[in-house]
Computed example of a mutant assay.
Amino acid sequence: MSADAASLTSRSIVVGRPGSHRLIRRPLPEPGPGEVRLRVAAAGICMSDRELYDGRRAPGYVRYPVVPGHEWSGTVEAAGAGVSTALIGRKAVAEGFRACGVCARCRHGETSLCTGGYAETGFTEPGAFADHVVVPARLLHLLDDAADLRAAALLEPAAVVAGAVTAGAPVPGERIAVVGAGTLGLLAVQLLRASSPAALVAVDPRAARVEQAVSYGATQGLAPAEAAELAASESLFDLVVETAGAPDTAHDACLLARRGGRVVLTGMFAEGARGIDPVHLSLSQLTVRSVFGASSSAWADAVRAFGLGLLEPAGLITHEFPLERYEAAVALVGSGDPAVGKVLLRP
């Protein structure tokens, strides 16, 4: 294929059914009214993408065949009818939820709770494991011209964390624990350090991860057993942000919080996860919040923090693959290899 012909086409990974994918080439997608087309710079792979590929994503939250990819960054290449051409050439990220904007929850600003029906880029709508992605222009969040697009691919999980931090409402001088030092946990440490906590403790069984958390601003890193011993000594936390989604972490996070404390759950839990003890919950008068995805305001907070240098996602990236090696890339995610951090596809 000639270079001119290739420029009029776009490659994408299509998962036709669980465990089956193809790299295909199609005509360059054209944005419709209100839409923009972006050239994808980088796209992150998370456990939700692995679940999609393995067929373990909950029914109703995926539509096969699908082009995955909900964590990404890129540059606007084309604008559809009704969209300003001034966007062309701008670096950007975009919200994943295709919120309706008119239901009661959307009008209240809670776009991640939209009741208009679930639709999300990379799960029910074509995503960014591709050369190009088309999204509604209203979902764009523009970046500085000098922004590192490789690092910006992590702004989707950063937006989830920004929503969790807002829900947790940290106050300067408080004691804070982050349970889990994966991508979400390390991003949470970076955002929470800006609240000037008296203590910011990262809890994870992987020594290398808690060391990385300390390098990002945690005052201490503990294994789960050490954290439990600390809690037993009544050295408890005002705020606990759970990010791991492991079978016991929701339950354990509540045991780390002081009486009257706050717990925010951001991990994606599987069936059979250990529940929160209702007796402990009521006697301790805990406030427990959960976060699923990110609202528009959380995205704006994450992009602002990134622009100010409060978020430094690049250090979380450990592996990068071309589209042709998608299968190898997705296999790394959830493999249990402690050397695997954030995995990127680079079209």
Rank of each mutant, 00 (worst) to 15 (best):
S84E: 07
R209P: 01
R57T: 15
H251A: 15
R107S: 12
V93S: 09
G173S: 04
L281W: 01
R11N: 04
P278F: 00
A298H: 12
S196F: 02
A162Q: 04
V93P: 11
D238N: 10
A146K: 09
I88Q: 04
A130L: 15
L323D: 02
G168I: 08
L184S: 11
L345R: 13
V240K: 13
P59C: 04
G44D: 03
A169H: 10
A257L: 06
R11Y: 00
V66W: 00
P68S: 12
G101D: 03
R209E: 01
R346E: 14
T121Y: 00
A164P: 08
A146F: 00
S215E: 14
A152P: 06
G32W: 03
G267V: 06
H251K: 07
V303Y: 00
V179R: 13
G109H: 01
V210L: 12
T121E: 02
R262V: 04
V343I: 07
C100Y: 00
D252Y: 01
V67I: 15
A43N: 08
R56F: 05
K342A: 11
E120F: 06
A207E: 04
A294E: 03
A208H: 04
L308Q: 13
H280V: 08
L332E: 06
E327D: 13
V135I: 14
G307F: 03
L265W: 00
R57G: 10
S335I: 07
A169E: 14
L308G: 04
G82Y: 02
A58D: 07
D337V: 13
S196Y: 02
I13T: 05
S2G: 15
L256T: 02
I13Y: 01
G341Y: 05
A227G: 13
E271Q: 14
Q190E: 10
A94Y: 00
S10E: 08
R150W: 00
V343D: 05
Q220N: 12
P31M: 11
A225P: 10
S295D: 03
A223F: 00
L192K: 07
G334Q: 09
P126M: 08
L187G: 13
G117Q: 05
Y326A: 13
A94S: 11
T85L: 10
A81I: 08
R37F: 01
A128Y: 00
